[in-house]
Design a protein around this nucleic acid. Sequence first.
DNA 1: GTCTATATAACGATAGAC
DNA 2: GTCTATCGTTATATAGAC
Lengths: 297, 297
Amino acid sequence: MNDKKKKIIQSALKLFGEKGYHSSSIQEISEASGLAKSSFYNYFQSKEELMITIIKYYYELLVDRVNSIEEIVDLPTREKFCQQLTIQIKEFIKHKDFIQMQLREQSIDENDEIHKLLFKLRAESIHWYSMQLKAIYGDKISDHLLDCTTMLNGIIKEYMFYIIVDKIDIDTNRLASFILDRMDGIISSITSIDKPLLDTDLMANFINYKLNTLENAKSLISTEIKEFKRIIDASNFSKLDHEKVMSSLEAIEDELANDNPKIVVIQGLFLYLKSFNKPIIDEMISRIDQIVKSRLT
Amino acid sequence: MNDKKKKIIQSALKLFGEKGYHSSSIQEISEASGLAKSSFYNYFQSKEELMITIIKYYYELLVDRVNSIEEIVDLPTREKFCQQLTIQIKEFIKHKDFIQMQLREQSIDENDEIHKLLFKLRAESIHWYSMQLKAIYGDKISDHLLDCTTMLNGIIKEYMFYIIVDKIDIDTNRLASFILDRMDGIISSITSIDKPLLDTDLMANFINYKLNTLENAKSLISTEIKEFKRIIDASNFSKLDHEKVMSSLEAIEDELANDNPKIVVIQGLFLYLKSFNKPIIDEMISRIDQIVKSRLT
DNA sequence: GTCTATATAACGATAGAC
DNA sequence: GTCTATCGTTATATAGAC
C-alpha cells in the first residue's frame, strides 16, 4: 500500500478513536495527514470507503498475528490459547486507536457494506473463539459453546474498555491467564445445566454465515484441485515431481476435509508447490489462493 | 413533564437507538414528534441538552425500578439480587431504545457535561454491583470485588447486545439466574489467586467519585439535621410529637452512618415527618431532600 | 498529485409573523 | 406555541489550474 495512503489511514484512525467516526471530518483527517482537503479524494472515493479499508486492514493485521502462532508453537491447547489471547490483547493495545474506535461505536450502520463487513467479522470471531474453547474443554461443553464464547467475549471487551478507553494500567501479562482461569470456573459450573441460553438455532445467522463461506470455499477449492490434478497428469513432469505435486495436492484436500482447516498449512503447501518453478503450477495456485484469501481469511 | 416534551424524548430516543446520536438530526426528531424543526427549541435549548435529559430520565427510571424491591422483598441476598437482575434485564428490554443507544455509542464525549454525567453513572453502577456481590459472597471476595464486578458487567452487556441489537430471543426469565450461577463458578475459581487485576488504586477515579459524593452528601445532610433538631427543640411541639420527630431524625442519622445508606429508608422517614403537617418540618425536609436527590441518586 | 475555489446539501440554531 | 424563512456554519464531494 502507498505510504501516503497509510498515513491517511493512521491519521483517520487516531481521530476516529479520539472523537468518533461522525465527529471527524475529511478536513481534519486531511490536515492531520499533511494534505489539503480535496487531496484526500485521490486516495479514497469517500469517507465510507476509508472506513471499510481501515476495518479490513487492521482486522487482517490482528488475525494474522494470532494465526502466526497457531502452527509454530507446539504447546498444550490450553497454553497455546492462553498465548494467543495474550498476543491478541497486546495487539489490541498496540493498535488501540482501532480498538477504541470499535469499542466506542459498535456499529456504523448507515452504510450497508460496512454493516455486512462488521457482521462477517463478528461471525468469524465467534467461530474462532468457539473452536478454541472446544479444543480446550472438549465435547463436554459443546452444548454450551455459544454461551461460553459470549461470556468470554464480554469479559475480554470489558477489560479492554478499562485498558484502552479509561487508560487503566492492568498487567497484560496476567490478563489472559486470569481470564482463562475464570473460564475454568465458568465451565465447571456449567455442566449441571441442561439447556443452554444460546443454541445454534438462535445464533443461526452467525453460525451459518461462517459455515456457508467455509463450505462454499471448500467446494470451490475442491473443484479447482481436481482440475489441477487433471492438468498435472496430462503434463510432462518427471515421475518424482509428479508424485510430489500429487501428494501435496492430496495433503491440501486432507486439510480442507477437517472441520477447521488450517490456512497456514495450505499456504505452506502452496509455497512448496511454487518451488517447482512451473508456470502452470503457479497459475493454478494463484487461482486457488484467491479463493482461500477471499473466503477463508 | 410536559406530554409533548416526552413525545420528543421518545422519538429522539428511537432515532438515536436506530441510527445513532450523530446521524439523527433535529429535523428528523422534530418531524417524528409531529413538529416543525424550530419548535424543537421551545422544549430544549440544544441537541445536547436533549441528550442529557434523556440519559438522566431513563437512568433514574431504571434505578428506581431496581431500588423498588431493595426493601420490599424479604429474601436471601442472593435471591434478591437475582430478582433485581431479572427486573433490570426486563427494564433494559422494555426501554431497549435507550440501551441500544448506550451500547452503540459508549461515549458521546465532545460535550463535557455529557462526559461527566456518563462517568458518574458508570461509577455508580460499578459501586452498586460491587455492593451486591459483596452482600452475596461476603468478605472472601472483597479483594476481587472490582474484577468480579467487571466480569459480571461484561457478561451482562454481551448478552444484552445479542438480545437488543441482534434481536436474539433469549429466555429472559433464566438469564439472571444463569449468569449468577456462572458468577458462582467464577468466584469459586478466584479464591486461590493472590493478587487481583483491578485494585482500588487503579480504579481510584471510579471509587473516589462515589465516595466523594457520598461523604459529601452525608456531611451536608448531617449539618442540616443538627440545625433541624435545634429548631424542633426551640418550637412548641407537644412532648409526644417532639419525641417522634427526634427519633425519626436520629433514625435518618443512623441510616446515613451505614456504608451504603438506603435512600428508600430515608425517604420513608421523610414521608412520616411530612405527616405531621408542620410547615417548619416540610421546609427542612425539602432542603435535605434536595441534597439527597442531587448527591445520592 | 497537489492545490484553490466552489458546488451542493445538511446541520444546529434564531428571528419574527401569527 | 406554532409555524415559515433564514442565518451562519460545516459537511462531503467536485472542478479545474498548476
